[in-house]
Design a protein around this nucleic acid. Structure first.
Lengths: 135, 135
DNA sequence: CGGCATCCTTATGGATACTG
DNA sequence: CAGTATCCATAAGGATGCCG
């Protein structure tokens, strides 16, 4: 009886199961902007407009959407100052800061190894171009 | 003259610029499956079918696509044994293993903090439900 | 300023069928 | 077994306009 063959293969690390909740968190990080927004806030709270300018290329919609998602997940908190015009400031929660330390190292890794990756891609493409199935 | 106002705001961490190549790497990680595939390979090489079974829920298409992308980036290597039927084995390159140490801690974080996130989301939703703009 | 609502285009990903 | 190719549904994301 093969009820749970997967678990026997590697020994039950649960992110690998379809309905494991922790996959949600990976899904969260699978947002192109999440890592950058958290990084941008790691140096201190910022207002909406400042974030928008800092995260070159993000649209208003995606910034709003990303911030809501992060706020809902308890990673970012939102402080409203009822001035005129209204000011809204975003900052990391303790949980957000905790995650940021990991994401920061991922961003650093990206910057440090982008050259190696670019080179690997070029090499791969060249190999692929040279052996284009000569039928 | 405001040629590069963004850099003065935070001091030149370049992932934040639109055309910075390191954003590509973040884009790579923005693939729902990348983190899981690399994690699945962290315990040793695996064959295509084994990966597919281990990563519960992945389709054949997405697995192929993800593996190609990772192979092209130099994070995974692919070894073909011309047996019948053919065997194809995937494993981490040194670069891939290096990245995996970071991603592993992200997966661990996900598993450790999923409860806090779930609770935060529930609280947020409840707050939102209780203050539905009583106009 | 900091949004939300709408429209519309494109990218993503699943299902299915076929191949070496 | 390990793919490739095709079709199709849905979701992601950009552009625009309006509002408190």
């Amino acid at each position: 009886m093969y009820t749970t063959p997967d678990l026997r293969e590697l020994g039950g690390a649960n992110v690998y199961l379809r309905n494991c909740a922790s996959r949600d968190v990976l899904g969260l990080l699978s947002n192109k902007w999440v890592c950058l927004v958290l990084g941008s806030l790691s140096s201190g709270p910022r207002r909406f407009g400042a974030l928008r300018r800092h995260l070159d290329g993000i649209t208003q919609k995606m910034l709003t959407q990303t911030l809501r998602e992060l706020e809902r997940a308890g990673l970012v908190d939102r402080r409203v100052f009822p001035t005129t015009p209204p000011q809204v400031e975003y900052g990391l929660t303790p949980l957000g800061e905790n995650l940021e330390t990991l994401l920061g190292s991922v961003r650093t890794w990206s910057e440090e190894h982008i050259d190696a990756i670019t080179a690997a891609r070029a090499a791969y493409d060249e190999r692929a171009a040279q052996a284009p199935k000569p039928l």
